[in-house]
C-alpha cells in the first residue's frame, strides 16, 4: 500500500505509451537511414553478453567501479549506449525480442539500474502486437520480477519505485496481462 500507482496514473501512462509507439512507427524509416557514429557497433543478434554490455555498459556488466568524469553519458562503452531512436529503429523484431530476453534474464539475478529501465521501455515501445507466445511469457516474467523488487523496497522515496511501477503498468495494462495489474 502506498507503493503502487493510482489507476488514473496507469491510464495516463498507457495513453502516452500508445502515442509514443505510434510516433516510433511513424519515424522509424527516417531513423533507419541515419548513419550511426563510428563508435556504435551493435552486437550480433545471438551475442547475449555483447548486448548486455552495449545496453548497460561495462561498469554495470563487469561490476567495475563507476568513475564520475563530471560529464554524464559521455563514455558510452562504460555507461552503456542509451536507446537512441537511430539505434532502436535499426532493430528488427527478432532482435527486439532477443535483447528484451537478454536484459530480462540479466535483471532476474541483479538489481535494477537506470540504464535497464530506459532500454526495457524502448524495447517495449518497439515490440509489435500481437505478441508471440514467447514474448508474452517474457514480459510477464519482467512484470513479476519488478513486483518482487518493489516488494522489497523499504522506502516510497526509492528512486527505483517509479520505474518499476511504469514497467509493471505497461506490461499489465498496455500489453493486457491484466492479472498482473495494480488495482
Amino acid at each position: 500500500l502506498g507503493f503502487s500507482p493510482s489507476l488514473k496514473w496507469q491510464q495516463q501512462q498507457v495513453g502516452n505509451f500508445s502515442d509514443i509507439r505510434q510516433s516510433v512507427n511513424k519515424h522509424r524509416q527516417l531513423w533507419q537511414t541515419k548513419t550511426l557514429d563510428d563508435n556504435v557497433i551493435m552486437p550480433k543478434i545471438d551475442d547475449e553478453e555483447g548486448w548486455k554490455r552495449f545496453c548497460l555498459g561495462e561498469n554495470v556488466c563487469l561490476n567495475t567501479a563507476q568513475t564520475d568524469s563530471g560529464e554524464p553519458g559521455v563514455d558510452y562503452i562504460k555507461m552503456g549506449f542509451p536507446p537512441f531512436l537511430s539505434i532502436v529503429s535499426k532493430l528488427n523484431q527478432a532482435t527486439v525480442s532477443a535483447v528484451l530476453e537478454y536484459l530480462i534474464n540479466w535483471f532476474e539475478e541483479r538489481e535494477f539500474v537506470p540504464q535497464l529501465g530506459r532500454w526495457l521501455y524502448a524495447l517495449l515501445a518497439c515490440l509489435e502486437k500481437p505478441l508471440l507466445p514467447e514474448a508474452h511469457s517474457l514480459i510477464r516474467q519482467l512484470a513479476r520480477r519488478c513486483s518482487t523488487v518493489r516488494a522489497n523496497l523499504e522506502s516510497k522515496d526509492d528512486e527505483r519505485l517509479s520505474a518499476l511501477n511504469l514497467l509493471i503498468c505497461l506490461v499489465a495494462r498496455y500489453f493486457e496481462q491484466n492479472d498482473l495489474a495494480d488495482k
Partner: peptide, 30 residues
C-alpha cells in the same frame, strides 16, 4: 508550412529516453 518540420524537431534521437524520463518523473509528482 505543413507542421512536419515542427514534429521532427520535437521527435529527435533522444525522444524515447525523454518519454521514459517524463513518465518516471510523473509518478514522483503524482
Amino acid at each position: 508550412g505543413t507542421g512536419q518540420s515542427d514534429d521532427s524537431d520535437i521527435w529527435d534521437d533522444t525522444a524515447l529516453i525523454k518519454a521514459y524520463d517524463k513518465a518516471v518523473a510523473s509518478f514522483k509528482k503524482s
